[in-house]
């Protein structure tokens, strides 16, 4: 089923649109994943990238990423109004991390254990918050995750029951 029916974009869709990093780039270090498969009138990502790595030919065209120039810094993650940008790092054999945008309460803190969620909301185990950036109330949260789920994590829930309310 198309992402227009599910709200879930597949890796195949992303590959077809040129939005999926090549395997050799994934091995090198952290890299951005722009999950923006629709021609949307927006170019905030183009301005957001400090290295000019995200390109749009017109305001409605699908973004292109210059994979080799992306440093995986994650500046764009908290700036994308569609919350559609992520950074993944699977370059180490044993550990991995993702940067995901987040706009819920409670606010996560570095060291928090979080429940990881996939594109379809499925639970993908636990991760630990390593770093947090903020841009206009949107957080970009870097989480250490298991390597096998790193390419799937798109959201999370903070588990901190004792402090709720």
């Amino acid at each position: 089923m198309s992402f227009r029916c599910t709200g879930i974009v597949s890796v195949d869709d992303l590959k077809k649109l040129g939005l999926y990093p090549p395997p050799e780039r994934l091995k090198k270090g952290p890299v951005v994943l722009v999950e923006c498969p629709e021609e949307i009138p927006c170019d905030i990502c183009v301005d957001a990238c400090p290295f000019g790595v995200i390109i749009k030919e017109s305001i409605t065209s699908i973004p292109k990423v210059l994979w080799d120039k992306c440093t995986g810094c994650g500046t764009c993650v908290a700036k994308c109004p569609g919350l559609a940008i992520f950074v993944v790092d699977i370059s180490h054999p044993a550990k991995a991390s993702v940067v995901v945008p987040y706009e819920f309460l409670p606010r996560p803190r570095v060291g928090d254990k979080v429940v990881l969620l996939g594109r379809d909301g499925r639970r993908l185990g636990y991760g630990v918050v390593r770093d947090i950036f903020e841009d206009n109330k949107t957080l970009a949260v870097k989480i250490d995750v298991a390597r096998e789920v790193a390419l799937e994590v798109r959201g999370f829930e903070v588990v901190r029951h004792e402090e709720e309310g």
């Binding site: 992402f3 227009r4 029916c5 599910t6 709200g7 879930i8 974009v9 999950e35 923006c36 498969p37 629709e38 949307i40 569609g82 919350l83 559609a84 969620l117 996939g118 594109r119 379809d120 909301g121 499925r122 798109r154 959201g155």
Partner: peptide
Amino acid sequence: IGGWFVHAAKIARYG
């Protein structure tokens, strides 16, 4: 879906 994909994706990932 009638709206933008990215708006749908934001709720799909929270189940």
